[in-house]
Design a protein around this nucleic acid. Sequence first.
DNA 1: CACGATTAAGACAACGTTGTCATTCTTATA
DNA 2: TATAAGAATGACAACGTTGTCTTAATCGTG
Lengths: 330, 330
Amino acid sequence: MREVAALAGVSLKTVSRVINAEPAVSSELASRVHAAIERLDYRHNRAASSLRRSDGRSAAIGVLLEDVANPFSSTLHREIENVALQRGVLVFAGSSDEDAERERSLIAEFTSRRVDGLIIVPASHDHSYLLSERRAGTAMVFVDRPAAYLDADTVLTDNQGGTRAGIAHLLDRGHRRIGYLGDLETIATAAWRFQGYSSELAAQGIELDPGLVRLDLRGIESAATAAAELLSVAAPPTAIFAGQNLLTIGAYRALRKLDLHHRVALVGFDDFLLADLLEPGITVVAQDPAALGRTAVELLFRRLDGDRSPSIHAVIPTRLIPRGSGEIQP
Amino acid sequence: MREVAALAGVSLKTVSRVINAEPAVSSELASRVHAAIERLDYRHNRAASSLRRSDGRSAAIGVLLEDVANPFSSTLHREIENVALQRGVLVFAGSSDEDAERERSLIAEFTSRRVDGLIIVPASHDHSYLLSERRAGTAMVFVDRPAAYLDADTVLTDNQGGTRAGIAHLLDRGHRRIGYLGDLETIATAAWRFQGYSSELAAQGIELDPGLVRLDLRGIESAATAAAELLSVAAPPTAIFAGQNLLTIGAYRALRKLDLHHRVALVGFDDFLLADLLEPGITVVAQDPAALGRTAVELLFRRLDGDRSPSIHAVIPTRLIPRGSGEIQP
DNA sequence: CACGATTAAGACAACGTTGTCATTCTTATA
DNA sequence: TATAAGAATGACAACGTTGTCTTAATCGTG
């Protein structure tokens, strides 16, 4: 910048003014400065800039996802990027892998780089460590799961309502023995979904049979094994509800292997690519990760723009998409 | 930091030394400093640190992908994150959407934040604008597609070889009329794949019928339409090779709709989730995005560690995975 | 016991910017 | 024509760190 100023024959401050498009610069000097910038191919140093600036903004936000490579997370990520980029804000992304320790260390890395805001899909169950960060002015929004021991903006899927709708869909078609495959119980969304299952059964006066429930499953393989077990008992379920993406795929694999995919109904929570091309198409309770991301990032920027109102808790509805597998009769 | 120094009763510099774990600090002072850091919950400001540091490292890299939400990109992204995080390096991610303008502006944002390195899946066809950046010491690696007008490290998939293997697989099974669906010709990988198709046909003495080729397709819908057209002519192909993920899915949709999915063979370039669960399973020439990402990030860090050897051009092999659709006989 | 070598700590400037305030030059008005 | 008001520019300090150099304290050796 010093060199630019020298070449243009102006002061440092004038160059700064030109770069930040401040009004009080004559057009003649401005063009001379621009020419010098061109000539020297000078690049503005935002780190130094935000260090000196009064608001201290870095024009970067941190996004903590479960895993940047999974479709749910990456859809969220993309929506966030879209809005952020429009405002010239860059996005740091990181994967927690459902590990509380990793969550903390990644967020520490984000904050040590002075991100303006954080969008967090939490893996830990205590976010009080973020209190001081919030006090320091960092905006933060929690997505998909609630913040614990911290009052903050949240954007959640209607997990319980969605699951109830899915279970009701099966009950309407006459199923009375509905198996349930659930993710790690420590994950809040998994717990809520299971609550949806329990409460919808209760609401319709059906007793929950613990023998039809398998929880704490992770990934396709364990779900396939669990589903196969459920189906091999004396009084097997006539329908299965899978509480997550990969569990649905695992259940479908098991059904195919046992050649039951046209006999036993299957409804999954969370849509996935190609669910419509399987045989039969898989009925799902679809989340809307794009809407989650959009809502979260808009909330974040509203805070960054100065909104100081009490915490907002947004809930994004689900949508049941019948494709065949959920319409099989008992 | 000033407050920490005051509370611990030491100088600024000593705090700095403790934070950077420099050796020449007595353990007593160090623990006093640590206590003060705890008490004030002080956060180190890396922006200021890297501003002052002689190497000027920001411990952040920029990753430019086609779209953070697509599986190929996000797998790459994840591999990069894994290696980077181990070294305390954070990752900025951005999506070019195949738009050269967007590529440039994202990279400008990255560099204005003084990233130490760039991993780029290029969308533009002239990277000479990066020359000055490279001269300034930013490491860079190009992935999946070559750099243009710039001599730089590159990691590519063996597009032509992979396609030739896929075509040979079909020819071996007796197909002589093989349709081809290709992505935008401006994308280098798409061009190489089409070359693979042409050259393998030529090598086996089969004349290329332009009526069996549809290029410049984008996305599932246009591929489905193109495939349906190919199949509706007087002498339709007995097999289809789809030069990309979504084109394969589009082709499969079309085959299903015409109830030809057990009659016409299909081989796709690039694997996708659930390809094995479709009916029939889809035979693919699988890329290895994880290996691409790993190789790229390792190359990048080698450069950051000071390797000044000439540019390296790595090629990652493909693997043909037979699942049924590619083994249908004419 | 004196001396040089080693170790631990601090003072100060500098990294590349921008906020604040002072200065100069115009322009409009009485 | 004198003067106030406003516009354009610059000088300088400061943002939160770390590199360099200096000083003070400790140690081992002949």
